[in-house]
Design a protein around this nucleic acid. Structure first.
Lengths: 342, 342
DNA sequence: ACACCCGTTGTTAACGTTCACAGTCACTCC
DNA sequence: GGAGTGACTGTGAACGTTAACAACGGGTGT
């Protein structure tokens, strides 16, 4: 008794529905696609047949003939991180609201070959458009070999190429953070940066530096970090040893948490002795000790705008325009910053 | 000059490749599918033609005839939370390692109709199998109307129905946490629970209660929470007011963070006056103040096992078996717990 | 009374691939 | 020398849907 000998009735197709309803398969198709010119009585008969047979339309066959899959592809990295996870979530919600499905490829390594492969796969799969969440320089450059003819949008990956981009203004966010600290009377602001191949890390460094230079302040060497709480912790241990430091801008909230921990261990009071600003506004940061002053990024807006842009490209039939949309960050003052002591 | 007037050459198909290479379309197909019986010289000729034309195979057409899309569907909830995000990531990685793509539907509301709709969509789309991340009671019950004939696995959704399930042993994790605290000499352990419609919240309550009862200790009323740091904060404010409390088991790390914050504000020392245990071991918890003792869930393992189970169902052609696989949690002792004071 | 139009339905041909089967050719074996 | 075998290739028919067009019947206007 093999498995295949089991009753395995083929699931019903349009022709089956048509036979039961006593119409042609084309009429069934018309009912399914809400075509206007179908008599109400015919329509109900068809719907009854569909119900009776448990018919489900085959979107694969439909995609073959219409050349539209109503599926969008998303390429992303480590969707465990809050930023990418929120962005992908925003994308998915916006896509589904517009009647599209989402096929996701999460890369764990960020080499160009991996991105290329993912893009190829999505293209073969026949997606109607692609969103690439490409916050790293290497990934952004891989956008160069996007399959031609497929509408695409990059998120956080402004590499200056030929593809539309939606991003949060990192430079502006970093500037807000730095100016806030300078405005509190701090002589200068130190920085714990993200990994250098991330465009966001680079933008935050640039904004921080620009603000310091505009105020004529010394620009300390940034401390290295890799977004992880541990790297923030290690940077914090270094910073705690230098007495003249009174203000730090940390490139994300997770590292800021690590730094806060290091300061607590070293007996360095925040914000009494050192003021700390983070970036992202993760849901936890309001409950850090002390609650973290930070820069909020609206990932949901990023997702929505990227989908809006992509759908526009799809509908207008023009693959790969090169628009730009920048979402402004919002500054959130909490308890981890205070005026400089004299 | 309309958009459509633009040069829009139809992308090449197998027949085009065949013509260029001077073979039949079937030979091209054979080359593409690594069929053994193709002469090397023919193969190279075909590959050259593919390269020259920039041919890309159409997986939609292939799926139509083979009845396999090599795509798996995933239904999940709020992939912004660490747990679901990590699980989905694990699923995606495991699926791609096995040569499958992943189509994701993230529901924001958890009503049965929504789940049903998502499942229908995935079925129409022709996925080869479905993973439902269904940590809520309502979602788990929606599994009852899974499309018949489609292999499926539920994650964290043991509703006792006819579908295979992979989950982390929540009861065991909660028991470990509670016994750890009792072992430190605490008279009893209070609990901040998750939302009641989550199976995980329920399991953690059950494990906590069982451990207390086994030790013959009083079982206090659990405090309500919704997984958010804020709800943990509010529970913490209540707990801080009751002097005789010395130990709390909080149902996840985010709420534990909120509780720690409330304790800090109230001047309650952790672990000096109150010991705190969390659940999840999010990457941040090692850097809370103090570093959090917690229960680690291996979400990656959950993802891998769910895919392994699903692929087994697919290959054996048997839709919807009812296996169970339970991943054991791991206890992580850090600095938020200490022996009870006398 | 005729042509015409419009709403409704059916018929046939795609879409681009794989499957099943049938060839062709060179070689081996008796 | 003929049959048999195996490697390689080609031909035609699916897969299940939508697009394009044709056909039918009952108005409506002249």
């Amino acid at each position: 008794m093999t498995v295949s000998s089991r009753q395995e009735r083929r699931s019903p197709v349009m022709a089956d529905v048509a036979r039961v309803a006593g119409v042609s398969h084309q009429t069934v198709s018309r009912v399914l696609n809400d075509h206007p010119n179908v008599r109400t009585e015919t329509r109900t008969r068809v719907l009854a047949a569909i119900d009776q047979l448990g018919y489900r339309r085959n979107l694969v066959a439909r995609a073959l003939v219409t050349r539209h899959s109503r599926t969008l592809g998303v390429v992303s990295f480590d969707t465990t991180l809050y930023g990418p996870a929120s962005t992908v979530y925003g994308i998915e919600q916006a896509a589904r609201a517009a009647g599209y499905f989402v096929s996701i490829v999460s890369l764990r390594t960020i080499d160009r070959a991996g991105v290329r492969e993912a893009l190829d796969y999505l293209a073969e799969q026949g997606v109607d458009g692609i969103v690439v969440v490409a916050p790293q320089r290497s990934a952004a450059s891989a956008l160069a070999d996007l399959p031609p003819g497929v509408p695409a949008v990059a998120v956080e990956g402004d590499h200056g190429g030929d593809v539309s981009v939606v991003s949060v203004d990192q430079v502006e966010g970093a500037r807000l953070a730095t100016e806030h600290l300078l405005g509190l009377g701090h002589e200068t602001v130190w920085h714990v940066r993200g990994p250098l191949d991330w465009l966001e890390a680079e933008g935050r460094i640039a904004g921080w530096r620009a603000a310091l230079e505009a105020a004529g302040r010394p620009v300390p060497e940034p401390l290295p970090g890799d977004w992880s709480p541990r790297s923030g912790y290690e940077a914090g241990r270094l910073l705690a040893r230098i007495p003249e430091i009174t203000a730090v801008f940390v490139a994300n909230d997770q590292m800021a948490l690590g730094a806060l921990r290091a300061f607590a261990e070293a007996g360095v009071d925040v914000p009494g002795r050192i003021s700390v600003v983070g970036f992202d506004d993760v849901p936890e940061s309001e409950f850090f000790s002390p609650p973290l002053t930070t820069v909020r990024q609206d990932f949901g807006a990023v997702g929505r705008h990227s989908i809006a842009m992509l759908l526009k490209q799809i509908e207008e039939g023009q693959a790969q325009s090169r628009e730009r949309f920048v979402v402004s960050p919002e500054f959130k003052v909490r308890a981890s910053t205070s005026p400089a002591r004299r």
